[in-house]
């Protein structure tokens, strides 16, 4: 098997950049990473099929919902957002699933750690990225975060996966 390591590097660099933005709460820059019709999806079941519109999700954010979600995290009105400590996420196991000219699909593993009221909460997840190549890198067309906790019980979440 021949790996396209150049593309893999480019995609991984983008994913790490996004991860760093989210851990450091660069939310406005994160919004800019999206293509307008993109969807940020956190399914309510780990094995949910991809008919997200006709399924209940934990989050299914179009551009409006993303903007409102970020506003909630930033405007100081939400007591849970204000109480959210730092997050540190690790992303690895990046694999290219599709490498088209118009769309690149990659899958990776993520572990997000949150310090919540003095207790460490850890969320392992399988994350799929659909990326549209753009002049300055990529635009997010879709990000699907499959949480292992989705099949069980989550703690409440006031950050972005």
């Amino acid at each position: 098997m021949k790996l396209n390591t150049q593309l893999l590097n480019d995609v991984t660099a983008f994913i790490w950049y996004e991860a760093d933005l989210l851990d450091h709460k660069g939310y406005q820059e994160w919004l800019q990473l999206w293509s307008n019709d993109g969807l940020y999806i956190v399914p309510a079941e780990f094995d949910a099929d991809d008919n997200y519109e006709d399924t209940l999700n934990l989050a299914l954010d179009n551009a409006d919902m993303r903007r409102m979600r970020i506003a909630r995290l930033e405007d100081g009105e939400s007591v849970s957002a204000n109480a959210t400590g730092n997050t540190v996420r690790m992303v690895s196991r990046v694999r290219l699933l599709e490498a088209g000219d118009d769309l690149v699909i990659a899958r990776c593993a993520m572990t997000l750690n949150e310090m919540r009221h003095g207790k460490l909460v850890t969320y392992p997840a399988d994350v799929e990225y659909q990326l549209k190549p753009a002049a300055d890198g990529y635009r997010l067309a879709r990000k699907v975060v499959r949480l292992m906790h989705a099949d069980s019980f989550l703690r409440t979440v006031s950050f972005i996966f």
Binding site: L56, L58, A59, L60, R69, S78, V79, S80, T156
Partner: peptide
């Protein structure tokens, strides 16, 4: 049914715009 689910996602559940604040309280 889609609209009902989108409204539910907006407020309810661990990633809604309402429940996390209840949970915090």
């Amino acid at each position: 049914n889609r609209k009902r689910m989108r409204l539910h996602e907006h407020f309810q559940g661990p990633m809604g715009f309402g429940t996390p604040d209840d949970g915090e309280a």
